[in-house]
Design a protein around this nucleic acid. Structure first.
Lengths: 212, 212
DNA sequence: AATTATACATACGAAAGTGAATGTATTCCA
DNA sequence: TGGAATACATTCACTTTCGTATGTATAATT
């Protein structure tokens, strides 16, 4: 049985990516043979080599897949809807954590990228794909904090740019520590939300002696 | 030429570890064969298997080595010498960054642990060795922030425990972003120090309307 | 309806890596 | 000063993995 219909072909492709994610997560990217992926997908290596040039391309496909889930979250950051820009940042962070908690596919992929891949040789370029979104996030944070300062929501004396760096590091850190600490047991973690709330609150102008 | 003197034997051991670090950093842990390490160390695999059971043990030896450089920095954190506990935190962060900047061995090892190792199977246990110091750091931060609150250095209304989590995430984040962004070009980065300064300053009670 | 391109499965050859077994020249120790 | 332990080097047998080459049944095309 070969030469499936286009729908079936796409289904096979998705199953291979899905199997690759489970395999990479369980065995690590390097130690996962394409033979293993094929077994877990219920196909042979022939199918994998038909759809992907090699393991690196398969990894890229797996990574591209999560963009579907990240784009709407990112969109919330770039839009200037809320009157208080600090709310935008807080909402974004909550949204990201929510997505990671509720979407195992997203969570597994992040775990693979952070703890189960060695960024050398053909995977070195992938590292750039990890740097870029962080850089974009930093740029956006600078804009948002500047906006917050303009509108008087940011605590006076605080430098928007320094705050952007601080929040970037904070965000990177919570994700890393969250994923590493919970390991396979990703139960709901209230601590992380309290941490986000206090992080943002720390930057807010005191409303006790507010002007309005 | 075999059966060296004890000093030469130890020298061989160190050279193997040194070669392993360079190899792991260049090729990643999984993709580095012991044959490659042997070549880079100027020995054969026989020597490696004599000194270490397998690659995981060699990796552990490599990781243990950096404790020499980390212990004195950690010591500064646990001691309660400075009157202002927030100074202790700031000093610790500066000290850590200094060490990473000046000690290539330390830096390379951290890069290997963060971006060139897949924490699965026999390396899964190593992940615990990465979690533990972070957990210890968090515990210590809680103590220090509580102390700072007691002595009136911490801005009122701030919860010491929440601040501890915030600083842990911040620390994790700056290290990750710093290593990933600079890549192989680890030039002096003033931005990171400004970031640390502002992070701690944000938690200080305003001295403008100070009580003393 | 015949042909062609597709979507795989199967088979092949080569390379690399591993752990263990064995060989061997020293150094240490009595 | 001679035997035993040491500190490796060398060799071996085995497994794994990769990329490619080739086979083939079926859908799409004309």
């Amino acid at each position: 049985m070969v030469r499936k219909t286009k729908a079936e072909t796409e289904q096979t492709r998705v199953e291979i990516i899905d199997a690759a994610r489970r395999a990479f997560h369980k065995f690590g990217v390097s130690r996962t043979s394409l033979e293993k992926v094929a077994q877990m997908a219920g196909v042979t290596r022939g199918a994998i080599y038909w759809h992907f040039d090699n393991k690196a391309m398969l990894f890229n496909a797996l990574r591209d897949q999560i963009q579907t889930y990240l784009s709407p979250i990112d969109a919330g950051l770039t839009s200037d809807e809320a009157p208080d820009p600090l709310d935008t940042i807080e909402k974004f962070l909550y949204g990201f954590i929510d997505a990671m908690e509720n979407n195992p596919l997203l969570r597994q992929t992040f775990e693979i990228m952070m703890w189960r891949c060695e960024y050398v040789n053909e995977f070195a370029s992938v590292l750039y794909e990890i740097v870029r979104p962080r850089h974009d996030f930093l740029s956006e944070l600078k804009v948002i904090y500047a906006r917050a300062a303009d509108r008087g929501f940011l605590r006076p004396t605080l430098d928007p740019e320094a705050m952007a760096y601080d929040t970037l590091s904070f965000t990177t850190g919570i994700i890393h520590n969250w994923l590493i600490a919970l390991g396979s047991a990703h139960e709901h973690c209230p601590q992380i939300r309290a941490s986000i709330r206090s992080h943002v609150a720390l930057r807010r102008r005191d409303t006790i002696s507010g002007t309005d």
